[in-house]
Computed example of a mutant assay.
Amino acid sequence: MDYISRYGMDFNPFIKNSKEIVVETSDYKEVVCRLNYLLNNKGFGILTGGPGRGKTTIIRNWCNSLNSSLYKVIYTSLSTLTVAEFYKNLAMQLGLEPMARKIDNFKIIQNEINRYTVEKRITPIIIIDEANYISNGILNDLKMLFNFDMDSRDRAIVLLVGLSQLNNTMRLVANEPLRQRITMNYNLDNLSKTESKEYIMAKLNGAKCGSNIFDETALEAIANASNGIPRIINKICDSSLMIGNTKNLNTINSDIIMLAVNEIELG
């Protein structure tokens, strides 16, 4: 028997599907609120959090909600580039022909951002993912690159997304000029035990599951073993569905969760 039909789901909500189920936790709502504040005020924003906390998922869904006639989203995770390569990459993302020299790329990028904001009335949103790997050289240049009209206005939004150590980098004396320009800074925490259980139930509801697949002992075990990290919750739930189906169980308990946790750790 197929595990999806056994557990009465339209699809497995714990793996990447064409249909994404967005679980609006308190942190999710807070991040969206902060991002909208950044949208209105422009400038620089920072979003940090440990691996698997859902940073990229939140950013992706927020970007999808924006009016494309008012905002141009440029996303890059190529944060281990040199300064020169970063400029060339950003120029290409803006649809420009990259120049050989950094100073020339600097000029054409600024001109293009000005063209978007002044002529087209479109605000560029530059999202740099995995920004904890970004070099101090690029961070130093960011403030200059997005300095318009003698620093009297912000023409674009720059969002740095990465692991929590990004904040340590920003505290360095060398990055003080950029840090003073930060409009929004938020760190994603782990889900609480209650939120972890609500997260699982919301995922199941999104997959049109009408029964209680996981009993209370299972939910408690998942919350404890995952430490409230969404990516780990998904992996445990996915593995436990497979194991439960193999054992012909219609309800999953903590014993199955422990088997799933062991399987993930061995994998």
Rank of each mutant, 00 (worst) to 15 (best):
Y199G: 01
A202V: 01
I58G: 04
E24S: 11
F44L: 03
S254G: 07
G162K: 07
L94Q: 05
Y37P: 05
N67P: 11
M92K: 15
N262Q: 12
E30L: 13
Y37R: 10
L178C: 05
C209F: 01
G50S: 13
V173N: 11
L163F: 06
N105E: 04
V83K: 15
K208D: 13
A223Q: 05
R179A: 15
I58L: 06
V118T: 15
V173M: 04
N114T: 08
F11K: 00
S254I: 01
N248I: 00
I74L: 15
C237L: 07
V118M: 15
G95S: 03
A131Q: 06
I232R: 13
G210T: 06
K102C: 07
E265C: 07
N248Q: 10
S68I: 15
I236W: 04
L188W: 04
I232L: 14
E97F: 14
N105Q: 09
I243L: 10
T76V: 09
S240G: 03
E97L: 14
K197V: 07
R101Q: 11
L94M: 10
A225I: 06
R101L: 09
M1F: 02
F146N: 09
L266N: 15
L172Q: 14
N262M: 09
N41W: 09
Y3H: 01
P98F: 04
N111H: 10
E85Q: 14
A221V: 07
L78P: 00
M92R: 15
V31T: 11
I59N: 09
L249P: 00
T82M: 09
S135P: 06
N105R: 08
G50K: 07
L160E: 02
I257K: 05
E176W: 00
G54Y: 02
I182V: 13
G206R: 02
L160Y: 03
L38G: 05
